[in-house]
Design a protein around this nucleic acid. Sequence first.
DNA 1: GTGAAAGCGCTAACAT
DNA 2: ATGTTAGCGCTTTCAC
Lengths: 344, 344
Amino acid sequence: MTTLSQVAQHAGVTSATVSNVLRQRGKVGEETRARVLAAVEALGYRPHLTARALAEGSAPTLALMVASIANPFYPEFALAAEQAARQHGRFLIVCNTNDDPDIGRAYLDQIAGTLSDGVLVMNAKLRVDDLKMTQRRGAPVVLGMWEKPHEPPGLPCVAVDFHLAGALAARHLIALGHRKIGILFGGGASCIHSERERGFHDALAELGHSDAVVRIMHVHDSVEGGLSAGAEMLADGLVTAVFATNDLPALGMLHAAADLGIKVPQQLSVIGITDIQSARQARPALTTVALPTEQAAAMSIALLLELIANPSLGSPMRTAEAPQLVVRASTAVVPKRRLKRRSD
Amino acid sequence: MTTLSQVAQHAGVTSATVSNVLRQRGKVGEETRARVLAAVEALGYRPHLTARALAEGSAPTLALMVASIANPFYPEFALAAEQAARQHGRFLIVCNTNDDPDIGRAYLDQIAGTLSDGVLVMNAKLRVDDLKMTQRRGAPVVLGMWEKPHEPPGLPCVAVDFHLAGALAARHLIALGHRKIGILFGGGASCIHSERERGFHDALAELGHSDAVVRIMHVHDSVEGGLSAGAEMLADGLVTAVFATNDLPALGMLHAAADLGIKVPQQLSVIGITDIQSARQARPALTTVALPTEQAAAMSIALLLELIANPSLGSPMRTAEAPQLVVRASTAVVPKRRLKRRSD
DNA sequence: GTGAAAGCGCTAACAT
DNA sequence: ATGTTAGCGCTTTCAC
């Protein structure tokens, strides 16, 4: 390993000078500068980021807390977050909490404020107390996707209008004539998905179709969850459309329909929320409400960096662009039979 | 932030003693020990990992270099790697190189040996020279999945027998009676996939069916790549089975078949390699050759840690368990018609 | 058993 | 324009 002072020695100057030329700080003589640069080159010097961090009192990394990077939603967010961090000269440490608040806390305890300057949370399964305590220790925390733009969480966050996302799904289904709708409610009772479901119901009410929801099932937020619940929901042939609060169960529903020989979208419409990669790739391609995932990731990193630079900012809430309906091949107008049946 | 010396002061001892009780090192008096622990508790002290790293001359993080964490293959590997690292008290920095050797080099330059003690590479798009130089600087490098167990790469690695993976696919297809086989060759010409393809061909030769491959197409290693190539490959209805060197194009092929109204597996068999999550979830579920992804990740981390502890180990190669054929719903015996046609 | 002191590699005043 | 001098928070000999 080559150190600053070795470079200094080689260049016949002192390490402070080397530091200065490397960080373009104080004015350094043109000739000295060249000599230093040559020494850096000759010795293959690379700054020791850990030492620099200690001296500067700040770390070059940010922590990203997710339930599991293997969940198909996170990688897209993580990629965008890492790129954004990278552009600001920061590295990203990925922390999988496995939805266990204790693992999350252990992570926060260890790295927040020591190894990482800030924490980006994309996982609701962390205790708010732990997050606040992390903040108090001096490491900013931002919530990567807060579901209620109109109800700040008391922590810095980037809000995404999940209520609207649900509403968009409802309007789409109603516009297609669906009046017998099933809901696949993912991710546990008191979670982020409830806002989506509320948006769905509210839109239904606005449109005068509050009674259109004929089935609601809570499912594990996964393809498998949607698959098993789907088989049950589809059994009696009542519903003509299914709204899943997330793409994964929606995809599972697609499979359930296929297994039962039910044609999508001819006999059944399916809509999800998020627009993950596999939604585009599914057969039929999934109609869904796209979330501004990448934008939210980039905004989160930007906010985090601002908070690190200026901790007195409080708990600002930034709002990402609105979710957007993406119509693909899994939704269509309600089959005639169903429309008739409804009128009796 | 609470520092060691603050704790020391609070406990009426010196920081060396606090350090000792915290790291269970030198013998500390039972009574002092209790007092220190109480102070730690009272002040909410957490060790500053960066400072510790600098003092110890080693970092608590490992770097994982991947092309893109958003590629469906990497998250599973990354999760396993992070868990393994975690169990050894290490954190994982994820570096997306976007298949750009220059980005990879920039990463290596910056973090290897300073922020991270070692580098796990899951991406062939890094220059070997850069990796060797990283090693020379004192940061061990391990290749997460080396494709040739019988040809060590000159760098520490965990080998997975990709030749066998290809062979297993071939034997399966031949056993089912397929004699008109198309190959979707993913990931660029001189890449990791060539070993799989070679394994496929070698097995064919062994079985006396070298002429069974009637189409070979190079495709982008993605669902889209398989989809577009698939449409073309299937156009004339010649092939009865398709071997894709990776699951992603295999999945794309499934879609291409669906789009053309070709039934899988009744009219067409499709087999991939890897066994990513979506292979299980596809309809029909994809027959594939499962790679020991998680084991390779865990072994890679273990090897990396060994090398960090003992740099004089050289370039050991560990071999992960053999790939395994996983028969699901996308392959079946060749349709009769095809068998007949072959005999004319 | 506990303390004193040096130092990890770098930064940032402050001198000169 | 360059050098001197303190640290950053922790670990680790080496004395006592």
